[in-house]
C-alpha cells in the first residue's frame, strides 16, 4: 500500500501555511500527525496533489490553564496529553480517552488537533469536546476565529474549517470544584475504533445540583453527536438513578447507529444505554470527590 504521487511542502508558521494553502487551492491538504490522512492516502481513498506539513510549526504544542480556560495547542500529541500532570490531576476524562485511542506508537504522533479536524465520528476526541463544551480556535485567511464545538462538525469528514484554516488551539472551560468527566468506549479489541463511545462532563453546585452537563457520543452517528435531550433532563436537577436511567434510554433512542461489523443497530443502541449510565455515574463520582 503506497500513496499516489503528491508534492510535499513544509511550513514553519501558521501564516505561511494559510498563504500556501490559499495559493494551492482545493488539491492541498494539511497534514499534522498524519495518522488519519496517510492511511487513507495509502489505500488511495485520498489522493491530494499537495500535502502541507504543519507539524513543524513552532508553538502549537502546549497544555496550560489560562484565565478560566484550559488551552491545548493543536499540535500537542496524544502522548504528551497522556503524561501531562495537569490533565491527569484535573481532567481525568482525557486520560480515559487517550488510553483507549489507537496504541502508544500512534499516540506518539497523532495530535489532538488532527483527531478533531479530521471530522470523523469514529475518533474519540470529538465526543469529549462536545461534552466539555470546547471552543475550536483556528486561523484563516480572514483572521482568527473561535468556533463553538456545537457548530464545528458539519458532516461525514466535514467541519466548519475552510480548506486553508489551520486549527491552532482547543479551549475548554477550566475544571471547577464539583466538576467531573469520564469517557469509555466499547471496542472489539484494544485500539479499535469505537463500537460506541460516551463522554460525560458534569458540574455540580455545593448542594449536588447539576449546573452543567455535556454528553458526547462516538461512532453512533454520521457526525459526532451531542446528546442534548439527555442533558436537558439532568440540568438543574439533583441527579438520581432514575434520571440516569432515563438519560441512558434517551441516548439509546437518539443515537443513529448502523449495523456493521461492530454489531447490530439494536446492540449498539443497547450498549449506548449501558455506557451512558456508567459514564454518568463515573463522572458524578469524580465530581463529588
Amino acid at each position: 500500500m503506497i500513496p499516489a504521487n503528491f508534492n510535499y511542502h513544509k511550513v514553519t508558521s501558521v501564516k505561511e501555511a494559510i498563504a500556501l494553502s490559499t495559493e494551492l487551492g482545493e488539491e492541498a491538504k494539511y497534514m499534522s500527525g498524519g495518522h488519519s490522512l496517510l492511511p487513507m492516502m495509502k489505500l488511495r481513498f485520498a489522493t491530494p496533489e499537495h500535502i502541507i506539513d504543519i507539524s513543524k510549526i513552532e508553538g502549537l504544542s502546549y497544555i496550560k490553564e489560562d484565565g478560566d480556560m484550559l488551552k491545548i495547542g493543536a499540535m500537542t500529541t496524544q502522548t504528551e496529553m497522556e503524561h501531562n500532570d495537569l490533565l491527569k490531576e484535573n481532567y481525568p476524562i482525557m486520560g480515559d480517552a487517550i488510553w483507549l485511542t489507537a496504541d502508544p506508537s500512534v499516540r506518539n504522533v497523532g495530535t489532538l488537533g488532527g483527531n478533531i479536524a479530521h471530522g470523523d465520528a469514529a475518533n474519540d476526541q470529538p465526543a469529549l469536546m462536545l461534552a466539555m463544551r470546547a471552543t475550536v480556535v483556528a486561523e484563516g485567511a480572514d483572521g482568527t476565529k473561535s468556533i463553538p464545538i456545537d457548530e464545528f462538525f458539519h458532516g461525514f469528514y466535514m467541519t466548519a474549517l475552510e480548506p486553508s484554516d489551520v486549527l491552532t488551539e482547543i479551549q475548554i472551560p477550566k475544571a471547577k470544584k464539583g466538576s467531573g468527566g469520564a469517557y469509555v468506549k466499547i471496542e472489539r479489541k484494544v485500539g479499535d475504533y469505537a463500537t460506541a463511545g460516551v463522554a460525560v462532563h458534569v458540574e455540580l453546585d455545593d448542594n449536588g445540583v447539576c449546573q452543567q452537563i455535556g454528553i458526547g457520543l462516538t461512532n453512533v452517528s454520521a457526525v459526532p453527536m451531542r446528546l442534548e435531550r439527555g442533558e436537558e433532563v439532568l440540568r438543574g436537577q439533583t441527579i438520581t438513578d432514575e434520571l440516569i436511567a432515563q438519560v441512558g434510554k434517551i441516548a439509546s433512542e437518539d443515537c443513529e447507529p448502523e449495523s456493521d461489523l461492530r454489531g447490530s443497530e439494536a446492540y449498539k443502541r443497547s450498549v449506548v444505554d449501558t455506557i451512558t449510565k456508567r459514564m454518568l455515574n463515573k463522572a458524578l463520582e469524580r465530581a463529588r470527590q
Binding site: 466499547i186 472489539r188 463500537t195 454489531g263 447490530s264 446492540y267 443497547s270 450498549v271
Partner: peptide, 11 residues
C-alpha cells in the same frame, strides 16, 4: 463468539 453475538443471542 463476540459480545454483540452474545448480546443478540440473549435477546
Amino acid at each position: 463468539i463476540t459480545p454483540d453475538k452474545v448480546w443478540d443471542a440473549i435477546q
